[in-house]
């Protein structure tokens, strides 16, 4: 099913789609673009290449309450909280959608599957959006990702000459286009091929990198690489493939909620044990954990490197200690380019 809509009509489309549940869009929030639920008056920005924080927020929210507790006397009541609203995620770029597939492997494929994630994943209709012009931080080509197409999207959207072309690829996608009804026009005559997009070429050679790293846990490269790391969590929080979380209670002794929220392996606190021992006590151990997880541990289990080249860590790390620097330091660079 192929449809089109003029870009100036989009606010009407947002309104119609948001009527049935949260509609996540790249939204201009002051100086930044964030993937957030749309509300009347919010300014969607489909031209932004990448949101400051990835679209994983839709599937693995930064904060997710899953139970309520009530204590009275000796009694403790634990009541599950359901979060299962149908959601539309409109404007997910191919890199971010590929990253969601990487999260699927951890949260769905690996036993036991995660029901909170599964419900969100199943109830979300994803509208992929092809990239027209990459920003200089984009390097998804290095991971074989085609910025012009997001396989796995329920609807694939392209921006073209003041139009948005929409192609439904799944039943969920068709239902979404049906929901929009008359706002959309027939697009069967429109050409749906997005132009080829070339992203930054850092000359990375990822072939065999995970295998090589298996023996490099104690490598001296780690003694240098971590040095500039400030120990903040920017890289992990903006990253679409980082998925670590914490569980915490919010409330008082009488009642409250339990939620899970994003956490970061870059924090010392992350692995600090109650007795005081910390297996990853220093920045070196933590930087190693982050990069080894992306480049060796995850690939060992799931057969692919846990990076999609979205470039957010290149853009956002305050000291420019990013995954490209790590890959190069670890020998994942084409020799001729050195």
């Amino acid at each position: 099913m192929k449809k089109v809509i003029a870009r100036e009509k989009l606010p009407e489309l947002w309104k119609s789609l948001a009527a049935k549940g949260p509609l996540f869009l790249p939204i201009q929030e002051g100086p930044v673009v964030l993937f957030q639920p749309w509300s009347e008056g919010a300014e969607a920005n489909l031209d932004a290449v990448n949101t400051a924080v990835s679209a994983k927020d839709v599937f693995l929210p930064r904060e997710e309450t899953y139970l309520q507790y009530r204590c009275s006397g000796n009694q403790l009541e634990l009541i599950p909280v359901e979060n299962a609203e149908p959601v539309i995620a409109f404007g997910v770029h191919p890199c971010d959608l590929k990253a969601v597939e990487m999260l699927d492997k951890v949260y769905l494929d690996q036993e036991p599957s995660d029901e909170l994630y599964r419900q969100r994943r199943e109830k979300t209709t994803v509208v992929g959006l092809s990239c027209r012009e990459p920003d200089p931080f984009c390097f998804c080509n290095e991971f074989g990702i085609n910025p012009a197409d997001a396989p796995g999207a329920d609807v694939m959207a392209h921006l073209k000459n003041g139009l948005v072309l929409l192609e439904a690829r799944t039943d969920k996608g068709k239902a979404l286009l049906d929901q929009a009804g008359d706002l959309l026009q027939d697009g069967s005559d429109e050409k749906f091929e997005a132009a080829e997009v070339k992203t930054a070429d850092f000359g990375l050679n990822l072939e065999g990198l995970p295998e090589n790293l298996k023996e490099r846990f104690e490598d001296p490269v780690w003694d240098e690489l971590y040095k500039s790391c400030l120990g903040c969590g920017v890289c992990t929080y903006v990253c679409p493939t980082c998925y670590c979380f914490d569980v915490e209670d919010f409330g008082h002794e009488g009642e409250g909620q339990r939620f899970r929220c994003w956490d970061s392996c870059m924090y010392g606190h992350f692995t600090d044990m109650a007795g005081g021992h910390n297996p990853r006590a220093g920045r070196k151990e933590r930087v190693r954990q982050r990069f080894m997880h992306k480049l060796q541990y995850y690939p060992e289990t799931f057969n692919e490197i846990a990076c999609v080249g979205c470039g957010r860590c290149l853009r956002s790390c305050p000291v420019n200690l990013d995954i490209v620097q790590a890959i190069k330091a670890l020998g994942g660079e084409t020799v001729e380019q050195r």
Binding site: E29, G30, R62, L230, G233, V234, Y237, V238, P318
Partner: peptide, 15 residues
């Protein structure tokens, strides 16, 4: 509103 964007990444503190 401004602080609602905070990810609690603590980059401000670390820098």
């Amino acid at each position: 509103k401004e602080l609602s964007r905070c990810l609690r990444c603590y980059a401000c503190r670390q820098a």
